[in-house]
Design a protein around this nucleic acid. Structure first.
Lengths: 137, 137
DNA sequence: ACAAAATTGCGACATATTTGCAAAAATAAT
DNA sequence: ATTATTTTTGCAAATATGTCGCAATTTTGT
């Protein structure tokens, strides 16, 4: 099933309208792997900033978009409906955000950690911080 | 060794002065387990906001303070000089930040994940998101 | 107690995010 | 296809968060 279809279905199911700004936000994220809020606003020229913020929040609730930690800020990425679950490493020299391969055993591990505290796990974030290969010279 | 002593030694070793604002920031964090920046500013009444920001940054570099992820924001906590390394779960109903027990095998796991990508790991953040026990009713 | 060095407070600025509300667009009904 | 209803947008202003230069104050080393 193509991504456009998933987007439309997700919105319809949640009884939300499909609008030009929403399409623009989605397109920008689809074309750029990940963006900061600022970059997203620039990528969606002509669309009001407040509208973008509101739609990012909506998309996050619907699982269309995920905020990934990046230092003490965050970046935006399409959610698991579109991209496989994964984590990121942030290079604190060049700032790059590197996608890490899926690791099922890590997921199991976190599930177990949560259940030991009677915590009902719904999602999680892992961020590795250090130096990417290129910056290790 | 008591915490006050560790604080003073850490500052002295780094050739930084011990001042009233720095003591206040440290005390606030020691008494409240974790605080948002806003809460810290309120807890340190009479101390200038810019000074608090500057000292938090200094403390972070010296390992006195750590920023822990809390949704897409962060909270401040004393660092590993004072508290054992641990992660947190955030309840997205009541907002509570729950400290999780140390888990050495999780640490190993993350080290391995990093080395598979030739990434030089210096630190990491793990945040579980979901419902705390009290909010699961 | 003194001089040198480090730190603070202030006020202004920059950036990020949120809000109320009237206008515009999308959806549902006819 | 047009109209009525509901949702969403744009705007402008408010709030929040973080940063900066610099003179005044505090701390440190002698």
């Amino acid at each position: 099933m193509n991504t456009q279809r998933i987007l439309e279905d997700t919105l319809r199911t949640a009884r939300q309208s499909m609008t030009t700004p929403r399409q623009a936000v989605f397109d920008a994220l689809q074309h750029h792997r990940s963006l900061t809020m600022r970059e997203l606003v620039m990528a969606c020229a002509h669309i009001n900033r407040a509208t973008i913020y509101r739609n990012v929040e909506l998309f996050e609730q619907l699982g269309i978009v995920t905020r990934i930690p990046n230092g003490w800020k965050y970046r935006l990425e399409l959610g698991e409906k579109f991209l496989d679950h994964h984590h990121h490493a942030t290079c604190h020299n060049c700032g790059a955000s590197i996608a890490l391969p899926e690791d099922p055993s890590l997921e199991l591990h976190l599930n177990e950690l949560a259940s030991r505290k009677n915590f009902k796990l719904e999602s999680h974030q892992v961020e590795l911080l250090g130096l990417c290969y290129a910056c290790q010279t």
